[in-house]
Simulated assay, not measured.
Amino acid sequence: MDALELGATLYVPGTRTDLFDIVAGRRHPGLRSAVICLEDSIRPADVPLALTNLASLLQRLGEEPATVPVFIRPRDERMLGHMLGFPGIEAIQGFVVPKATAESLPPYLRALASDTHLLMPTLETREAFDPAELGRVREQLLAIKERVLCIRIGGNDLLHTIGARRSAIRTAYEGPLGGTIAALVTAFAPFGFALSAPVFEHFDSPDLLLEEVERDIEHGLLTKTAIHPCQIDVIQSAYRVGASELAEAREILGNDRGVFALNGSMCEPATHGRWAESVVKRASIYGVRPEVVAAAG
Rank of each mutant, 00 (worst) to 15 (best):
V96I: 04
M79Q: 15
R60W: 03
V70E: 13
E77H: 15
S114D: 13
F71Q: 06
G88Q: 11
C150E: 14
A143R: 13
I89K: 07
S114A: 12
G163A: 09
T101F: 11
R152G: 12
T116G: 02
D115A: 08
I153V: 10
E103T: 09
R166D: 10
E133Y: 05
D76T: 12
C150L: 14
A50P: 03
E103M: 07
L134I: 08
V68T: 14
V70F: 11
G88I: 08
N53V: 00
E103D: 12
Q93D: 13
I162K: 03
R78L: 14
I144E: 05
L159H: 10
D76R: 11
R138A: 09
H117M: 02
R60K: 11
M83S: 04
A164I: 01
F71A: 08
K99F: 03
E146Y: 09
G135M: 01
I151T: 08
P121G: 05
A164E: 15
I144S: 03
A113R: 09
S56C: 04
N156A: 10
S104C: 10
E64Y: 00
V96D: 02
G94R: 07
Q59C: 02
I162R: 05
P44C: 09
L149F: 03
R126G: 04
R147M: 08
G94M: 13
E133V: 00
H117V: 00
T52V: 02
A143W: 12
D46G: 01
A55Q: 14
L142K: 12
S114L: 06
T116V: 00
M79F: 06
E64F: 01
L58A: 03
V97P: 04
E64G: 03
L54N: 08
R126I: 15
D157C: 08
V70M: 13
F86N: 11
A66Q: 04
M120K: 08
S104H: 06
V96R: 06
A168T: 12
L49T: 12
V97K: 05
P65G: 10
F129L: 13
F86G: 01
R138T: 09
P87G: 04
R136S: 08
P106W: 06
T122P: 00
R166G: 15
K145F: 08
N156R: 13
E124L: 07
L61V: 05
G88A: 10
L84M: 11
E77G: 02
E133T: 00
L141C: 10
L158V: 00
G155K: 01
E90N: 13
T52N: 06
L141R: 03
S114Y: 00
S114P: 00
S104V: 04
V137N: 12
G154F: 04
A50H: 03
G94F: 05
